[in-house]
């Protein structure tokens, strides 16, 4: 359904993405793992044109886009068929929870305010935050904000949702509630690309795991294989270090 080919991106002379290709099937959850600076986040941002890639092609069903030279119309089309969940939530600070979820529907999709309000409240109820519909983001906890961020993405009925480290900015005790909501999204059959450091969660929820380092895809495959029998040495060292490190945190 979504296929990415030969994506390249440099910041100044620093090559961040070197020829990344990736496939996502309908309803599939793909997790991208890798050390910081490996280009995971930049990849997601290029797909939503928050960064402009230097080269690469993107196909979303019938929509073919040249990432480097996409016209405004294609950029908008791509953005209106996908959704993005940010690491630091980025809820609109000047709007209530309900208005945050309504905004894309009303302004971008032209849904009538009444209908948008209904859909927004359904989405808020779905993430368990209907009682916070009238609150501004500044009055909500990080976990609540991120759940609203996910509701804001899901309400647009996107073909694929990009999640950029959705739990890294959260206090450890708030991570669970957000992961639960992401599990629900997966259960709904919405395709997702998740950049994450939650290894256990990636293993449980993904259909496909991609390990990136130095702007390249080093290894990819089903989660059991990547986590139990990684073929590449670099994947092995990364996972080993990560798992021991995170074990140490909890001791």
């Amino acid at each position: 359904m979504l296929s990415l080919k030969h994506i390249r991106k440099s910041f100044d002379r620093e090559e961040v993405l070197r020829d990344v290709s990736l496939q996502v099937r309908h309803g599939e959850v793909v997790s991208i793992l890798g050390p910081s600076g490996s280009g995971k986040t930049t990849l997601l941002r290029c797909l939503d044109f928050l960064e402009r890639a230097d080269g690469g092609e993107l196909t979303l069903d019938d929509l073919h886009v040249d990432l480097a030279h996409a016209k405004r119309r294609d950029v908008l089309a791509m953005r209106r068929r996908t959704a993005f969940v940010f690491q630091n939530y980025n809820l609109f600070a000047n709007k209530t929870a309900r208005e945050n979820v309504m905004e894309g529907l009303v302004t971008a999709r032209g849904v009538s305010p009444d209908e948008a309000r209904k859909k927004a409240e359904e989405a808020l109820a779905w993430v368990g935050l209907l009682d916070k519909a009238g609150e501004y983001p500044s009055r909500l906890s990080g976990g609540q904000q991120q759940r609203i961020g996910i509701a804001r993405a899901v309400v647009l009925d996107p073909e694929v949702i990009f999640l950029d480290e959705p739990t890294s900015a959260l206090d450890p005790e708030l991570v669970g509630e957000v992961l639960n909501v992401i599990r629900e999204v997966a259960r709904r059959g919405i395709a997702m690309i998740i950049v994450t450091h939650e290894m256990a969660f990636a293993r449980e929820v993904s259909h496909h795991v991609v390990f990136m380092e130095g702007g390249r895809v080093i290894e990819e495959g089903p989660p059991e294989q990547i986590f139990s029998q990684p073929r590449e040495e670099r994947t092995r060292t990364f996972l080993k270090r990560y798992l021991t490190d995170s074990n140490m945190y909890y001791i």
Binding site: D48, L50, L76, T82, A83, F86, N90, L156
Partner: peptide, 23 residues
Amino acid sequence: VPAGQREAALACGLTELQALRRI
């Protein structure tokens, strides 16, 4: 205004002008 506000608006499908005016 944090850059993320504009990015979130664009990711929701708003145009630059809509993001400017509404967010």
